[in-house]
């Protein structure tokens, strides 16, 4: 039985007079890895930010865990409650610069979730071990490489045991050499059944790891379907052009 975890209906977002999202619908089922593709300026990052309330949408409905919320009128309390069950990985990592890798992971547990310190440290170490950073607990962000920073950010996301993790172009700020280590961590999470919504330019990841692809263009969903269907039998001319662009590059 497929269980819808997250559904967004008719989301609209304007910046001044520019309409960035023009009524987008998406849905994510538990355990799915959904890749959102599209060229720059298509609105995919804004979509992700609106879903986690980093931007306030002008209209639209969010269904999360069976409960329905208005994206424009949701209360702070409801936002806090939803954020307890979600995690966000940023393009620029956004690690806490005055905290060590381990403290970055435990901070939210101790401060926001009031977890006892010892237990938080235990969970934090486990999360860092999982992303292959067991020898970097006490390192500050400036002592880590980009790939390591992003893996700390993923550990920080994992530690809160979210039901879904949002990734906003997690490898776009990285040297090509370092994207691999981040992508393999994400692949491992996908294999373990973590629900993920990933805005990305990594076609390899979208094709091989994600179960579903959403292609956005000009603030709308142009095409959505299973990864296989999307890459093998794209329907729209624009999608075909987009995919062939990338295959030519390879």
């Amino acid at each position: 039985m497929e269980q819808t975890m997250l559904e967004v209906k008719g989301i609209i977002k304007q910046f001044d007079k520019l309409e960035v999202l023009k009524g987008v619908d998406i849905s994510v089922t538990k355990g799915e890895v959904v890749a959102i593709l599209g060229s720059s300026g298509s609105g995919k990052t804004t979509l992700l930010r609106c879903i986690n309330f980093l931007e306030r949408a002008d209209a639209g409905i969010l269904v999360f865990d069976g409960a329905e919320y208005s994206l424009s009128k949701i209360s702070k309390k409801e936002i806090a409650a939803i954020r307890q069950k979600t995690a966000f990985v940023f393009q620029n990592y956004n690690l806490f610069l005055n905290k060590t890798a381990l403290q970055n992971v435990t901070e939210g547990l101790i401060v926001a979730r009031k977890m006892p310190k010892e237990k938080a440290i235990q969970i934090g170490k486990k999360a860092l071990d999982k992303v292959g950073l067991s020898d970097r607990y006490e390192y500050y962000p400036h002592q880590l490489s980009g790939g390591q920073k992003q893996r700390v950010a993923i550990a920080r996301a994992l530690a809160t045991e979210p039901e879904i993790i949002y990734f906003d172009e997690p490898t776009s700020a990285l040297d090509p050499e370092l994207t691999g280590e981040v992508l393999s961590v994400m692949k491992q999470l996908a294999e373990e059944g973590m629900t993920m919504l990933v805005v990305t330019h990594e076609m390899g990841f979208a094709r091989n790891v994600s179960t579903k692809v959403i292609f956005m263009e000009d603030g709308q969903v142009l095409e959505a379907g299973s990864a296989e269907e999307f890459f093998e039998h794209p329907k729209e001319a624009r999608t075909k052009a987009f995919i062939s662009n990338f295959t030519e590059q390879k």
Binding site: L95, E107, A112, A153, T160
Partner: peptide, 8 residues
Amino acid sequence: EAGYCVGM
């Protein structure tokens, strides 16, 4: 933003 996302 990262702080908000971990619930702070």
